Simulated scan of single mutants.
Amino acid sequence: MRYELDQLLEAEDLARLTDEAMASPAEKRHTFNPRRLGALAACLALILCLANYQALAAGVKRIVDYFSGVGAVDQGTPVLVLEEPLTWTDGTWTYHLDAYQSGGHLFVEMEYLSTRLEPGADVNTGVPDYSFEMELLPPADGDGPWLSQEEAVDKSAASYEDLNDWGSPEGAALREAGYRTYGSHSSLFQVGDFAGENYRLRITFIDDSVIEGYQTFTYEKELNLIQAEAKAAVTDSRTFPEGTVTVLVSEDGSGVTNFVEWSELSEYDPLGHSLELQFIGASGKRYPAYFHNTYLVGFEHVEYYPRVEVNEPITAVEISKIFFSTRSSDQERCYENLNWVIQLPQE
């Protein structure tokens, strides 16, 4: 079902909502609950789309920086990252670990891939095949205060995935590289006053798929963080009834981030939002986008990047759709046909 905005609202109400959305809202923070773009597309039958809506341009009201791998962060907020992701191999498995810290939160994410089809790698069963634990260890000297055990440990269960079940470009690339099984896990630690630049991390896998008993794998890694540098970015904003969306595009075209300043109409009810966008190369070719989320509390740390390899300069980004969701409604609201193209500076 499609509607024009003036079909949904009386002229007086439309003017009031526009005035409210353009007003300078108080400083607020909201946690973003992302949904994969593929899932959003699959649910379009349930989405209320407002076709041909031309959003109003608006000035940037919040000053933020763009950090690669993290996204948008309030200017002045310290952001620490690993200088290079950690990678190691054990038998058929290859592990990749990255970490980001903003304020009092440390986000650690891992991917692990095997060159063989591991037992129990069936995404359809829903049965956990392994238990996973990440633990931040106290300082090596053991004398200083440290997090409580509950705060320092994250435990969960998950399943391996057979990469033959992945029809995506990412799955094809991993299979071409020789991998057959995929797993991933992330942990968010509230380090608070104990935030620093160096951590010891213990990672434990308990393989439940072993026929005779459990098999445990444990690794300890040093996380040595450095101050991240903000990326030069082009910024543009548009205002919708739900709030003002500000998009930051890195000048080198490698990534996009964004955030919302919610309007008074939505400030007590927002659940999240997402973009559908394409990167545009110098040749005019369009590249689909995928996203990465660090789930750092207090801001929308989402970064979009080209889903496939790009072998030419990116000259622009086009935001084709914006989806908003709220806690009080089962439907997404979709704004499309935005004609929102952000041009990048060319040398």
Score class of each variant (00 low, 15 high):
Glu264Met: 06
Gly192Ile: 00
Val308Ser: 07
Asn337Asp: 14
Asp193Ser: 10
Ser168Gln: 10
Ala172His: 00
Asp252Tyr: 00
Cys334Asp: 03
Leu225Lys: 08
Arg2Ile: 02
Lys221Gln: 15
Val123Gly: 12
Glu336Leu: 06
Gly171Ile: 01
Ile319Lys: 11
Gln331Arg: 13
Tyr179Val: 12
Gly192Gln: 12
Val247Asp: 03
Asp65Cys: 15
Leu56Asp: 06
Leu265Thr: 06
Leu136Pro: 03
Glu242Ala: 14
Ser148His: 00
Val341Glu: 07
Lys155Leu: 12
Thr246Tyr: 08
Phe132Gly: 10
Val64Leu: 07
Pro288Cys: 07
Glu12Tyr: 00
Ile280Tyr: 01
Leu80Gln: 10
Ala230Val: 06
Gly196His: 03
Val302Cys: 10
Leu248Asp: 08
Val341Tyr: 01
Val245Met: 10
His185Gly: 14
Arg333Glu: 04
Gln54His: 03
Val60Trp: 01
Ile322Val: 15
Lys285Gln: 11
Thr115Phe: 02
Leu275Arg: 07
Val123Ile: 08
Phe323Thr: 01
Leu8Met: 15
Glu83Ala: 15
Val191Ala: 10
Thr244Arg: 15
Gly120Leu: 06
Ser237Gly: 05
Glu12Gln: 14
His273Trp: 09
Val317Phe: 06
Pro85Asn: 11
Gly183Arg: 11
Gly71Leu: 11
Val191Gln: 03
Gly171His: 04
Arg35Ser: 03
Lys155Asp: 00
Thr18Leu: 15
Gln7Ala: 14
Glu222Lys: 11
Glu176Met: 11
Ser283Pro: 08
Gly272Cys: 07
Ser24Arg: 09
Gly144Val: 12
Leu296Trp: 01
Glu12Asp: 10
Ser283Gly: 11
Val127Tyr: 02
Gln278Thr: 13
Leu86Trp: 01
Gln331Gly: 04
Asp269Gln: 09
Glu264Thr: 12
Gln190Asn: 06
Arg200Trp: 01
Asp65Glu: 10
Val81Tyr: 02
Ala72Asp: 05
Pro85Thr: 04
Trp93Asn: 10
Leu80Ile: 03
Pro288His: 06
His105Leu: 07
Lys285His: 06
Asp19Trp: 02
Arg286Tyr: 01
Val341Arg: 15
Leu106Gln: 04
Glu133Ile: 00
Leu296Met: 07
Tyr219Asn: 04
Phe32Asn: 09
Gly178Leu: 09
Arg16His: 07
Glu347Thr: 06
Ser209Ile: 09
Gly253Met: 09
Tyr100Met: 09
Arg29Ile: 00
Ser266Glu: 09
Tyr160Ser: 09
Lys285Thr: 12
Phe324Ile: 07
Pro313Gly: 13
Arg333Val: 14
Tyr100Ala: 13
Leu113Pro: 05
Asn124Tyr: 02
Leu113Trp: 02
Asp154Gly: 08
Glu20Met: 14
Thr87Ala: 12
Glu118Cys: 03
Lys28Ile: 00
Val234Phe: 05
Gly171Phe: 02
Asp208Tyr: 04
Phe259Trp: 06
Ser320Glu: 12
Lys155Met: 08
His105Asp: 11
His96Val: 13
